[in-house]
Design a protein around this nucleic acid. Structure first.
Lengths: 235, 235
DNA sequence: ACGGTTTCTATAACTCGGTTATAGAACCAG
DNA sequence: CTGGTTCTATAACCGAGTTATAGAAACCGT
């Protein structure tokens, strides 16, 4: 029983196993013994590579934000920045809906050992890196907002401030939806998220008609990207 | 419940101690042994009265929502429903800012033993009651929204749907602010929350001028209530 | 290639915290 | 007073993070 695993791989494999088990079995699967057994090493690996479970969980959170950022980066830019914002919102929501456990950990809503209570008091280096990745995801919203302002769709304003408003609305919706409010499945999108997007766009200076058109354009683009109707999808 | 004052007293004192220690020492203070020692009983009290720590934590969450609901109820109603919404938002934010640990637990962002991961899978009766209290807090927003629609300030719309948008925006801001984004102190209010409120009001049908005036009215009312510049608070 | 150092790893023990088993004390009805 | 119910304290159990320690492997300067 002494197969020697590639030392450099163990760290990555622990994080991979953590993410996989997290979505399969929930946050209680994020245990040093379980992860070590899954990877085929002893629990000591957690300490030599991370220093403790807290840093490993932070690394999982960082991976989640990184995944979110990549997802948002995949949205791309069209000549309708407001439609792009709708697409970003849908993508953000979709990412969280597909891996709720992962993002519950990333957003600090699920802390197996009381670790990672709030993002504000970050102790580990991994935690700070995770926060950095979170800001990276935010940057996508800022860029789209800036384009909307430049295109005259939004009133002239500080793009960070306007984007922070959009981020708040989007993040609040996603958080509350993931908590079970707004009902199951996709119904929250049409009932709350889309109207919320139109409300925000109009409030930031867009016209109601243009905002609605952009929402429709984003919906069409979403159908094209996901390849189905977007209405019947269950998760 | 009622006929035995002494026995029930222990139950209440455990919850009180939990809330107090929570804000003093953070979520790691929510331990059966610590709470029992604080109250002066053995850890068995946790099990005879709650059945386990999970139910006790849910009870703390319920107390948090109850407190939030009372806070919001104290806002009252004026003849300017949009200003009332601004006041509700400020109060909601203030409650969370004053007892961040309590509401981190209530919102499920801090789970000492992996308990209370998401609000969606509620197992204990206390957890369901806590969710009920959360909806109670939401009801205040719904009522103010309905009045705003009736007063012609917001476009005719389903009040639940419109209120859910407002709740999303508000909750998102509060969550992100508590996570450390938007900077420390009160600066997030003027930079993000107030503009966000105006954006939402305008997007829901209000005019920019009226929304700004209501924001100012709410700010003035807030100063009157707290007796000062918007700093500090009471409870 | 060699010897020393550093890094990684497994085993096993330790600590802490939730939980349970059990027996005694307090309370209440009759 | 007696019997049953409820609460309580003591003590143990168990799971999970962590640490101590020693051996193995990789690395490196000479």
């Amino acid at each position: 029983m002494s197969p020697k695993p590639r030392a450099t791989d163990v760290k990555d494999r622990l994080v991979e196993a953590a993410i996989r088990l997290l979505d399969e079995s929930g946050p209680e699967a994020l245990q040093a013994r379980k992860l070590a057994a899954e990877v085929g090493v002893s629990t000591m690996a957690v300490y030599t590579h991370f220093g403790g479970m807290a840093a490993l969980v932070d690394e999982v959170a960082r991976a989640g934000f990184l995944r979110l950022s990549e997802w948002l980066a995949g949205v791309g830019e069209t000549d309708d920045p407001v439609a792009d914002i709708f697409s970003l919102a849908r993508t953000y929501r979709q990412a969280v809906a597909e891996q709720p456990q992962l993002f519950a950990v990333a957003f600090g809503q699920s802390a197996p050992g009381g670790k990672r209570a709030t993002l504000s008091d970050l102790t580990t280096a991994e935690g700070r890196e995770a926060a950095q990745e979170g800001l990276e995801a935010f940057a996508h919203i800022v860029r789209a907002t800036e384009r909307a302002i430049r295109a005259g769709r939004f009133r002239p304003a500080d793009e960070y401030q306007a984007a922070a408003q959009l981020w708040s609305a989007l993040h609040g919706f996603v958080t509350l939806e993931a908590s079970g409010h707004f009902g199951p499945g996709e119904q929250g999108i049409d009932h709350i998220l889309l109207p919320l997007g139109i409300t925000m766009a109009v409030g930031l200076g867009d016209t109601v008609d243009q905002a609605r058109a952009s929402a429709e354009a984003a919906k069409a683009a979403w159908r094209a990207r996901t390849g189905n109707t977007g209405q019947g999808g269950n998760d």
